[in-house]
Amino acid sequence: MKLKMTKVLIICLLGLGFISCQKEDVLESSIFNTTDTLDVNSATYQFDVWLRDNFLKVYNVDFRYKMQDVGSDMEYNLVPTSFEKAQQMAKLVKYLWFDAYGAVAGPEFLKENGPKIIHLIGSPAYNPISGTILLGTAEGGIKVTLYRCNDIDPTDVRQLNEYYFKTMHHEFAHILHQKKNYPVEFSQFSKGLYNPLGWQYKSSSEAASLGFVSPYAASQVREDFVEVIANYLVKSDADWNNILDMASNAGVDNNGVTQADDGVDGKSIILQKLAMATKWLKDSWNIDIVQLRMEIMNREAHINEILN
């Protein structure tokens, strides 16, 4: 008992000593400095003002287009985004992603739950050993990093979705399920079929026939969950139906060889996964995924208007 008391005392006193050196920060509504510190003589002033007014003030988002290598994964060889592509990307991210969610769920939803930092990288992040590339990452529910931004073609909606916006929906779904977990039953749909190291060797057809919306979905349960949401949101009706058609048939591998019947009703599995994700979004976040998808499609038809 004597020893126990002494330990407590030591901890308290040392704690007191440390506390006396600290300064408490007052919590503010934004984690970023929202006072106007922009340099009117800067070459990027106009764009910086636009970012402040459209991202920081509306969504509390720091849109980082000037690459910070300390803010990226130093293990990769990466390059920054060009200023021209960064401006296009900013407008597209706002219009097709933030404003789409804002229209359906309201800006406050994104202020509370959305990413706080968007970081643009010009090149892909290659994994030379596995032969894969990283398109995006979400760190701690705070920061979304988008790669390959120098390849952006604003006129190609399918490319925009495949390389950037599917990634953003994918990463945002991770942020949401890290706050409110998806139903544990989801992991039962494809139990035993996940392959974290070999997913990249599966074709889209093979993945679909097994009940996955993409090869990457077959890597882990949580990736499967967010891939269902991301693909459903950005795929056109024709592309989504194509996934379901592939899922209804035997898989064809990357060499064009039809695989033996896997005994899985891929289409049924995918639709069940979508139904569970739809319910989770509605129940947990009050987001109607069908309405959100319509909003995105409607905006995709008007991209030219925001770029000019």
């Binding site: 287009y65 000037k66 060889n77 990466l78 920054p80 010009g122 090149s123 030379p128 590339i133």
Partner: peptide, 24 residues
């Protein structure tokens, strides 16, 4: 830091040919 892409300077950093490395 040259923190937006420059076609001349960043040609030495582009992680392509070979993928993932480039001229590093």
């Amino acid at each position: 830091t040259f923190n937006s892409y420059n076609k001349v300077l960043h040609a030495f950093s582009n992680p392509e040919l070979p993928d993932g490395y480039g001229l590093e």
